[in-house]
Design a protein around this nucleic acid. Structure first.
Lengths: 213, 213
DNA sequence: CCCTTTGTATTCAACTTTGACTAGGCTACC
DNA sequence: GGTAGCCTAGTCAAAGTTGAATACAAAGGG
């Protein structure tokens, strides 16, 4: 799973209705062009595919109000909303995700109820623990760890990553349980998109670290 | 950059000459089908593209010795060797890599001289430090961290990952400097592929954690 | 008033990835 | 001795990704 569909659905949902360029601008506002594969080509491709699959409804070409070619407005269908929450839950629950999916999930986490967010993150922690267990078990040869040579460093790496991932996730769970942030159904939602004609204050210069573990 | 070319070149180099199925088996032996995108389709695609680009030389269809359709043997050209080392260095040097690229780089690190491996990993550490710096600087709004809401957790996540990544890398540098493992030009290289007709002792059940940061 | 620049909005070709499918030959069993 | 299953070896269509290119309108400058 890539982060692009999750990001696009999340952006359109916050607007109610949006065209491709608007989505592109939001993702840029979020810095997503730096830490995910949210390039224009990918965005428009995702829009068309999701429209084809009934996740989005295309409102045919409204003439542009601010110069440029005509544009297509998209709206998230009921089916698309289901898909959005499925993707969001998956992004938060599973530990074996690309970094951009997790980042997208965190950015959109407040679309879920607080309890559910906590439950999903706990599943994530459990996944890390299980991964750690299976890695250490698998890479413990009878002839002693030396027999693996430098390959043992892979185990080392993964164990380190599992521990770090679990630790951070647990910290987040604690903060959420202590009442931090505003989740679904708790009043004024956090506004994460640009209004019509609003300037993007973070035009460029966002930190960059796309992938990696 | 994906890990597939690095893995394929690394596998063929260790055999001297290999056909697609053999590469596929090696990658499975390494567990790479679990932690990278090394599916059959990707492997054969990479072989053909790299042959087209002169990184590999195709020795036309030797009839299979063990049943099945005829097969094409590939050999790494001089140009391919250069590319291999360029990819390997990149995998180890840059911190903003997908997890599978780093794992592949670690698995093949002993193809480099010890000094160079250390130097590359030090660059990696420096990259993490710089990333950490730029993230904390960027996400420190004048109105206080509260104004970011849950988006501040993204900064938190990235800082945590930068610290964990730098820490693990530093540990590895220490171990290598203390003389661990056998690097290029230090005698008997570590054997990491299956011999002709050898059984894969790790048929399945490898730990699984492909991507994520 | 023409012409370059800027901003809006999207398209496209080339390449990569995915998962399922094809296809030949060997072996073991009834 | 036929046939089902398995291993060897690779192909393919559909989907996703990339980076550059296109198209159109308004704004600004000489």
């Amino acid at each position: 799973m890539s982060a692009i569909r999750l990001l696009v659905l999340g952006a359109i949902r916050q607007h109610g209705q949006a065209h491709g360029y608007q989505v592109r601008n939001d993702l840029e506002y979020w810095g997503a062009h730096e830490w995910s594969n949210a390039k224009p080509g990918s965005i428009y491709h995702a829009l068309k595919q999701m429209a084809k699959q009934g996740l989005l409804k295309a409102h045919e070409i409204a003439p542009s109000t601010a110069g440029g070619p005509p544009r297509t407005e998209y709206e998230v269908t009921e089916h698309g909303t289901e898909e959005y929450f499925a993707l969001l839950r998956e992004a938060l629950r599973t530990y074996d995700q690309k970094a951009d999916v997790l980042s997208a999930g965190i950015g959109l986490i407040v679309d879920l109820p607080r309890d559910e967010a906590v439950a999903l993150l706990r599943e994530r922690v459990a996944g890390f623990r299980e991964w750690r267990r299976s890695v250490t078990e698998y890479y413990t040869p009878e002839e002693g760890p030396q027999s693996l040579g430098h390959i043992g460093e892979l185990m080392n790496l993964w164990v380190h990553q599992a521990d770090a991932g679990a630790e951070w996730t647990e910290g987040l769970v604690e903060r959420i349980e202590s009442g931090a942030y505003t989740f679904a159904g708790e009043g004024q939602p956090f506004v994460g998109v640009l209004g019509e004609g609003e300037e993007n204050p973070y035009a460029t210069g966002v930190p960059h670290a796309e992938d990696q573990r």
